[in-house]
Design a binder for these strands. Structure first.
Lengths: 142, 142
DNA sequence: TGTAAATGTTCTAGTTGCTAGAGGTTCAAG
DNA sequence: CTTGAACCTCTAGCAACTAGAACATTTACA
């Protein structure tokens, strides 16, 4: 039986985060000691590992909730899990494309820095001049 | 003189977002009509364009605040702007590296999907098996 | 057995960068 | 002069946590 702290260490999760997952129903309410402290077993270690690994792959918590659901019903079709993963891959590729464009522009900006004073700073100039760039209005690499 | 709506259209910014920037002191308080509606001039168009363009390049609002500050003081050194940009480039490259790793793992996952039922779904299996991956504990492509 | 340190508890509020809605006012066109 | 679009303020919500206050429990060691 593990304390919340050791579970955290085992899975690379902060204690507060584990409690947060419990609060939003992603982790089950665990057993408690007489004094009211949480105690965890192997099932919980596995579940939390699954969650953390999925998070590291960028899956949003709602997608993880679906995946856990699929995982709990072994007779359902694999296609659903597959399509969730595909959706996630699309997201990742989209973000990569955006970041690539950003990197290019940032590099250009930096290369042109004269090192003088800000009055003729290329960095600020590029930032000011909106027209030069591919005006991707809902931009940001979110 | 522009209304907040036309300023928004000109710069690709939602009205609420402009008010939010004002609230956090990134945009100045503009003049008002007798009825209390905001009216903007060219200065504000420029400033907001600068902000939006910087956001599209992924700069956090705090960095933009610094950049605007530099921009307002033309006698200060360009190096500060340069180093902010460099910091930002580092962030972008870090995120790209992470996303690249994620993409690889996601692709592998998807390719191995058998299409059967979830009991032997590779996607779920990979997600369950934490050991296979480069355990990047504070991971996420944030 | 006593006690102190480490770890646990709940609750609330903050983070970033917006976005949405309620409920009301002003403005510009016809 | 009316109508309807666009404005106003204010509050709350989103994701996915993180941090802190104020207190309780557990564990290790003397």
């Amino acid at each position: 039986m593990l304390t919340i702290g050791s579970l955290g260490k085992k899975t690379g999760t902060k204690v507060q985060t584990i409690r947060y997952y419990e609060q939003i129903g992603l982790m089950p309410e665990p057993g408690r000691t007489e004094g009211g402290q949480r105690r965890y077993g192997d099932t919980e270690v596995d579940r939390l590992s699954f969650i953390r690994h999925s998070r590291q792959l960028g899956f949003p918590l709602e997608a993880i909730r679906e995946l856990l659901d699929l995982s709990d019903n072994p007779d359902r079709s694999c296609h659903e899990a597959d399509s969730i993963a595909r959706r996630q891959l699309k997201q990742v590729e989209l973000r990569m494309d955006r970041l690539k464009a950003l990197r290019t522009e940032l590099k250009r900006m930096i290369q042109e820095c004269s090192g003088g004073n800000t009055a003729d700073c290329k960095v600020l100039e590029v930032l000011r001049d909106h027209s030069e760039c591919l005006t991707d209005h809902d931009g940001i690499g979110a």
